[in-house]
Nucleic acid binder design. Sequence first.
RNA 1: GUCUCGGUAGCUCAAUUGGAUAGAGCGUCAGCCUCCGAAGCUGAAGGUUGCAGGUUCGAUCCCCGCCCGAGACACCA
Length: 651
Amino acid sequence: MSLLSTIRNRFDTALRQLTSDTAPMLELIRPVQDPRFGDFQANCAMSLSRHLSLPPREVAARIVAGLRIDDLCETPEIAGPGFINLRLRDSYIASRMTAIAGDERLGVEPTERPRHVVVDFSSPNVAKPMHVGHLRSTVIGDAICRTLKFAGHRVTSDNHVGDWGTQFGMIIYGYRHFVNPAAWQDDPVGELARLYKLVNQLSDYHDNLARYPGLAEAVNTAEQQLQRLQHNPDPDPGKAQKLASQARRQRESAAEALAAAESVIDSVRSRTELLALAESHPAIARLARDETARLHGGDTGNQNLWNEFLPACLSALQRIYDRLGVRFDITLGESYYNGMLPEVVESLKRQELATISEGAVCVFVDGNKAPFMIQKSDGAFTYATTDLATIRYRTETLQAAEILYVVDKRQSEHFQLLFRTAQKWGYDRLQLQHVSFGTVMGKDGKPYKTRAGDTVGLESLIDEAISRARVIVDENDDRRDVPLLSPTERARVAEIVGIGGIKYADLHHNRDSDYVFDWDRMLATTGDTAAYMQYAYARICGIFRRLSLDRRSFRAGDPVLITGPEERALALQLLQFDFAIDSVLSDYRPHLLTAWLFETADKFSKFYDRCSVQDAESAELRRSRLILCDFMARALHTGLALLGIETAEVM
RNA sequence: GUCUCGGUAGCUCAAUUGGAUAGAGCGUCAGCCUCCGAAGCUGAAGGUUGCAGGUUCGAUCCCCGCCCGAGACACCA
């Protein structure tokens, strides 16, 4: 049983004398925030005092009086308004540490209630290359899968790729009109990406051309409004200022929109061959949509093209997943659900959940004005329909008890509507959660782009991380009197450090916040980074290597001794690995694991600095410290592995 | 306009969901290698948690009103 559960059990007995509902009280027992107050704190007395109408310190005294915990802790202390502070006995920490030191699972017991969780993540559009935007979903989703599995759950990772949408119409149109046969032979995926970009650019050109007069007019209107306010301000100065700043903002955003449109138009006009293409394909957007419709309608020509494109697209994706070390149990894209969509709509109509509004089939959810549209007025299905079909499939065929969607937080409204619709549709015992995340920003505070303004390709991002890591690895090894690494080993370490750096930078932020992408910080060798943890791991491996000791021989149950504050702090920290994992899974927040890893590495560094292994006072103490070192190495290795990050024994 | 998030040290982020004197890292300044890997360690400075109220033993967190920013709002996924 975990350390925390053991303590909670003791409190449970004591609390039963005061209340029948002890569960919420036990939640209030937790690791202490400030080490001056001990190791654990119970905050239940304050909360309970209201129900018992007794002063909180009195309640605390009663709880302590009924508490039998002497074998684990020093005498509990009551502090402040009624905190109960616990300090574990060194002997107890030592015995627990001894007990789990040989455990493969590092003291983490598999969950008592395993469930089948489908994790939907990454999910790129296959017709275009992956970019930074896909990074967070992929990295966070993978970490969640690994952590759930380690905790003992059954996990199905599912890459719900976009292989059926409008972008396919665009590449079909592009292929039909603009393909370069030699390039297609040579590099089909690169050629498809070029075609997608081209069709997109030409459509945007016409679209912006059409919108241009309106945008220019909007700038004018905003300007006039501003002038009016300047000449005729509101009598209330506060209000006048507010109106003026509002008008200024409006003018700025109108001007920005106009400038954006201009830049799209100019990018085509500035190249005569592009302009010629644009002018000979004035209806390109509509025609591309028609290609999509024909594909969905079963047109054999388009189906054949789709069948030809898809394998190439998927294998290009696979190459990236291989480099990232991410794998999926299934890859069922939108196309997989195509045949089920009519029946989904029928079923919702039958249950009278769906109604027809402005020609489209919609589900209206209480409190939401916008409909959840499952069939457009032209008869086409939407991604809402696909998502519903997917829920049905995952529940009925895969037998999932829970589905997680690791998707950009901008889609939270969509998921709210989806979940409520699914619930009304009859999937009310299924756990559905949108595991949302924020945007990756550039240093300018806007979504991360290249200097030219394009989105950053994932492949080049990985390349750059590895080459930057290589510089660090080289510098470090070259500094040594005798370098430890061969060129091939250096290349391998650079991969581990570079990719680990990308992933860690992403995972160590609370997923909900936007975060700023910064190469220097990500690959810094100091501070809260993957490299710091990986280095700590390599240092430990170095100890065993130089002493010619086999780490596995320190897992036989020899006693761990606590002789000083550094050993105590490290052991106590290591005993709470299970708590860290629980906290990650309670709301799918991997940054709680990175925080634990960093704290653990920090405590290890202090231990390592002050407690010599080699020159320990006795053979028993030396052995005890080696046990801690081995356990620490496994904690780092396992903890990082749960985040999808590798380690190297020498670096 | 409506709705949803967010505003915390110079910078990047935490704060175990209402707990104690708000914590880390980077950066800055000052120290530590005849001593197990210095990609390390030690110390210092740095805060009116956007503003103003309210709820209570206790508020970064909950409620009200402003200010600022981002995003979503009917046939794109």
